[in-house]
Design a protein around this nucleic acid. Structure first.
Length: 498
RNA sequence: GCGCCUGUAGCUCAAUCGGAUAGAGCAACGGAUUUCUAAUCCGUAGGUUAGGUGUUCGAUUCACCUCAGGCGCGCCA
């Protein structure tokens, strides 16, 4: 999009600088050589930009075509996200990752990929042991004893809730308590994901990877390829061979696996399921693990480019102009559950997707609660509801869309604005998928809604002029359809009336 | 100390591979509706892009330095 015209290129400036030529002369030569029916006008501007304006006939013609994007060619993509540990509730960063991940799955599917959504459950290891011990201590406390919560144990109120249930059900055995505690959270996570409108295709348990031998196989491969060594009684994986700044421990001196070994095994499992691309969505505290996993992928013989790790940045909750502090230690962090209790799902989704996921996000609770023009999600939804209302009105008048719409009756400035905005959708989809950034859709929808509202303010749709009415009805139904499609990609509902 | 993210209008954020006069929303101010939804529209104002140096036709964007905020640097996940 240029300052003038619909598209621009800086090609002349690039050529001129390489050839030592005069930019505007190059631009003029380019402009002089391009002739195409879809281009109405080409202009050259200082210092050497070439601007293209599309012809009206081309725009009219495009309006009558169904838009679709197929850049995936049926390639398989696996998007793994949230994967919160079954040792506590889902926090706001994971909630944001949930919104982003789900939207990406929808985006990839929309653009011709075969995309699966996956959730990984770390149901093995020290954290689950700590949870188990914390529950046992709370149980002891509830039965009249003193709780001795271990160092780095879990202090949240939910630990007490689990202990109560365990007492009520008479569960005594440690391993049974462990299973009960993990199941408690896995089920809770499944439920809150459903409440958030997200269905995962696959839930993979870490314990299953052990059972199916993936962890042993991974270790064997690393050893065979001479990528491990023992130091201080611990087994190291030579990640420095793949550009890491230090090697990583995979088996501790007291013979426990660190997270890294099963994580690499998990990626082996994913890769053997024959995906063309893997996408992992992680929180900001995990960026240090990228090199370890990338090293693992390469050690297993796969190109590093097959995996894309997206770091979703942190979320700051704000209320009454103040930041709500989250303290894990005190067990007072805000969860996705809490958020959904207070704020409509559509708003939570839209707010998380309104910003680039690689940027820090301020979540303003006061604004989210407002059902007014300050809240952009309603702005977009309202445009759709307004259009539907007009279509109902036209219907009452007996005007419905015929097969012979004359789109060339649309000649007003606001009409062209809206036409171009609608036609831009395909490009926006492409950008959003290629950049893996759903916020581009959200931005676009706000723009599209604005273009519609501007048009609406200036021109009446339903008039005595039937051919024009039909052309405008066609334009706005196309707009409504696009809004609905876009909101679906964000996982936001699209009401018929408001 | 090292690494990653961030710093753009009062606030929250855009700005495509380095491109044109840095754009939106909210807040502020001034207007608009006898007709299809005012959860709307139009206008005004608001900027040393944290600061500095460099690279070049051109820097919010790239490099280096300084300042400020966040996160990570465990044989936890």
């Amino acid at each position: 999009k240029g300052k003038e015209g619909d598209y621009y290129t800086n090609l002349a400036l690039k050529i001129a600088s390489r050839e030592g030529a005069e930019p505007e002369a190059v631009a003029n030569r380019i402009a002089g050589q391009i002739k195409h029916p879809i281009i109405k006008r080409i202009t050259v501007h200082h210092p050497g930009f070439v601007n293209f304006s599309l012809s009206e006939d081309y725009l009219y013609e495009q309006m009558t075509k169904e838009s679709s994007l197929d850049i995936g060619n049926g390639k398989k993509v696996l998007i793994e996200y949230v994967s919160a540990n079954p040792t506590g509730p889902i926090n706001v960063v994971s909630a944001r990752a949930a919104a982003v991940g789900d939207s990406l799955v929808r985006l990839f599917r929309k653009s011709g990929f075969r995309a699966d959504a996956e959730y990984y459950v770390n149901d093995v290891g020290r954290q689950t042991d700590l949870l188990t011990e914390s529950v046992i201590q709370r149980k002891k406390e509830l039965m009249g004893g003193n709780a001795e919560i271990p160092e780095n144990g879990y202090h949240g109120e939910y630990v007490r809730d689990i202990a109560k249930e365990i007492i009520a059900q008479g569960i005594e055995d440690r391993s049974a308590i462990k299973k009960y505690s993990i199941d408690y959270f896995v089920n809770a996570h499944k439920q809150v994901m459903r409440d958030f409108g997200i269905e995962f295709d696959v839930w993979t348990l870490e314990s299953e990877l052990y059972k199916r031998g993936f962890v042993d196989r991974t270790l064997q491969i690393l050893k065979e390829r001479d990528l491990t060594y023992t130091e201080d009684n611990a087994l190291f994986f030579r990640t420095t061979a793949f550009g890491d700044d230090k090697d990583r421990v995979i088996i501790t001196s007291d013979h426990r696996n660190t997270y890294l070994l099963p994580d690499i095994a998990y990626h082996l499992d994913k890769l053997e399921r024959r995906y063309d691309t893997l996408i992992d969505i992680w929180g900001p505290d995990h960026h240090g693990h990228i090199k370890g996993i990338m090293g693992g992928i390469q050690a297993l013989g796969y190109p590093p480019g097959i995996l894309h790790v997206l770091i979703v940045q942190q979320v700051k909750l704000k209320e009454h102009g103040r930041v709500i502090t989250m303290s894990k230690r005190a067990g007072t962090f805000t969860t996705l559950n809490d958020l959904l209790k207070r704020i409509p799902r559509d708003v939570v989704r839209f707010f998380f997707l309104m910003r680039s996921s690689s940027q820090h996000l301020d979540f303003d609770l006061d604004l989210a609660l407002k059902q007014s023009d300050e809240n952009p999600v309603y702005y977009v939804q309202y445009a759709h509801a307004r259009i539907k209302s007009i279509i109902r009105f036209a219907d009452q008048k007996g005007i419905t869309l015929s097969n012979s719409i004359n789109t060339s009756l649309l000649r007003e400035m606001e009409e062209f604005g809206l036409i171009k905005s609608v036609l831009k959708y395909e490009e926006v989809l492409n950008d959003a998928v290629c950049n893996r950034e759903p916020y581009m859709i959200a931005y676009y929808l706000i723009d599209l809604a604005r273009d519609f509202h501007s048009f609406y303010q200036k021109h009446r749709v339903v008039t005595e002029d039937i051919p024009l009415t039909e052309a405008r009805l066609f334009l706005i139904s196309k707009t409504a359809h696009t809004i609905k499609d876009g909101l679906e990609l964000l996982g936001v509902s699209c009401p018929e009336e408001m």
